[in-house]
Simulated scan of single mutants.
Amino acid sequence: MFSVHVSHMKPPSTMKITEYRDIAAMILDLLVITDLTAISRTCQIMRELGQEVIRRRFRHILEPFAGNHLPSFLSALRHGNGLITGSSVRAMMGYNNSSASRDLNILVPYTGFDNLHETIEHTLGFTSISRVAHPAIAASIGIFRKYKSKHRIITLSASHKDQNILHIILNAPTTADMLFMTTGGLCYFYPNFYHAGIAIESHSGNLVPNDKKLGCAGEITDEFEMEKDMSFLNRTCNDLCPTFWHHVEEKRWRLCVDWNVEDSVTKVFHDINVEWRLNRECTNSECPRCFTEMSQNCECAGASNRDDVKWIPRQIRYRKPPFLQLIKGIFYGAQCHRPFLVPIPVKDGIDKPPTLDDLDINYWDLCHYSWL
């Protein structure tokens, strides 16, 4: 609840149209981006005011870094297919985040690094101060630079040559860090958790010390409830299990908001084949895929030759109740000199062509094997 003291306001009959617009724009600026874009679709006036608020918010976030060179910077960002992530995106979403004016995090494909590097150093006047990325994100980054100008910091990260830029986003320490924006819109993954104020730790989250900050993972702990796993559900994970693979084409795992449809943020997802999962293991005791439950099926120390793996197919084929489906897969153990064709059981109750999530691979995972 809030109140407005109207005694100092002019009577409506004497207020100018521009004053109405200014007041409406101030109210719209209090909205989060999803509500702002929704109300912008109600009528022509709201559309104009909404676009005005969005443009002003966007400039307010980036001008401290680009100054008078903002058009040149945005042009270089579009030309290099770059993305912005971190606290700047949260500020654009409408969440109060003071660090947005201090840090700007940019992601580019491997081929787009040089162009943005030149723009940051020569056009914006920032100086490179580091080439070492944080351990929690270093594995998914091909090239990294950290720049400084006075009290402002810019980081520029490029994907590996053979990977998509989204691999960096989807390997973030928490689900609350899996967000980005372009010059035409923004996107964030696991929107239901985000709106509920919950951030789930990913496989790289344990590389961030509890007393340290890394992007949103450290900055939002007061606003978000940080969860190590899915145990907070108090039930089985179902399709939320962190061991399940997801594809970026599955729209229910992401929410995209456009403010410029001609430069839609959804272009990032066109014609790419990127999958991700939050973790290799599930530690939710209510989930049948929990590691402690799966580890009871079999135990072994590993394998390096065909004799070592012979007994596992017997366990699979003579398991009771028997598996109704078995498929062939290629496995390559850590000590193996060559790959082996091995049987992979399909989980009970699956009667359709199986996906990766439908395979009961715990027999082989416990032998320290890797998928090819």
Results as ranks from 00 to 15, higher is better:
K16R: 15
T18G: 14
R21N: 11
I23P: 04
A25F: 15
I27P: 05
I33G: 01
D35C: 14
L36R: 00
M46C: 15
M46S: 10
I54H: 04
R55D: 13
R55N: 13
R55C: 08
R59E: 06
H60G: 02
F65S: 09
L70D: 01
P71K: 04
F73S: 04
F73M: 09
A76F: 15
G86E: 03
R90C: 06
R90P: 09
N96T: 11
N97A: 14
S98Q: 09
S98M: 11
A100D: 04
D103T: 10
D114H: 13
L116H: 07
H117A: 15
T119H: 12
G125F: 09
I129K: 12
S130Y: 07
H134T: 10
H134G: 15
I143Y: 05
F144S: 09
Y147K: 02
S159P: 00
D162Y: 03
I168K: 00
L170D: 03
A172D: 08
P173L: 11
T174C: 09
T174F: 03
T175M: 12
A176Q: 13
M178F: 07
M178Q: 08
L179C: 12
T182S: 08
G185C: 12
G185T: 14
L186Y: 01
Y188C: 13
Y188M: 12
F189N: 00
F189Y: 07
N192W: 12
F193E: 09
H195W: 08
I198W: 01
E201H: 05
C216S: 15
R235K: 10
R235S: 14
T236E: 08
N238K: 05
T243A: 15
T243N: 04
W245I: 13
H247A: 08
V248E: 10
R252L: 10
W253Y: 11
D258L: 04
W259E: 02
N260A: 07
N260L: 03
V261Q: 09
E262V: 02
D263E: 11
V265Q: 03
K267A: 09
K267R: 08
V268F: 14
V268T: 15
N273C: 06
T283P: 00
N284W: 01
N284Y: 00
C290W: 00
T292N: 10
N297P: 00
D308P: 05
V309Q: 04
R319M: 12
P322H: 08
I327Q: 03
I327H: 08
Y332W: 06
H337A: 08
H337R: 08
L341I: 12
L341K: 05
V342D: 02
V346F: 02
V346S: 10
I350P: 02
P354Q: 00
T355W: 02
W364N: 00
Y369S: 14
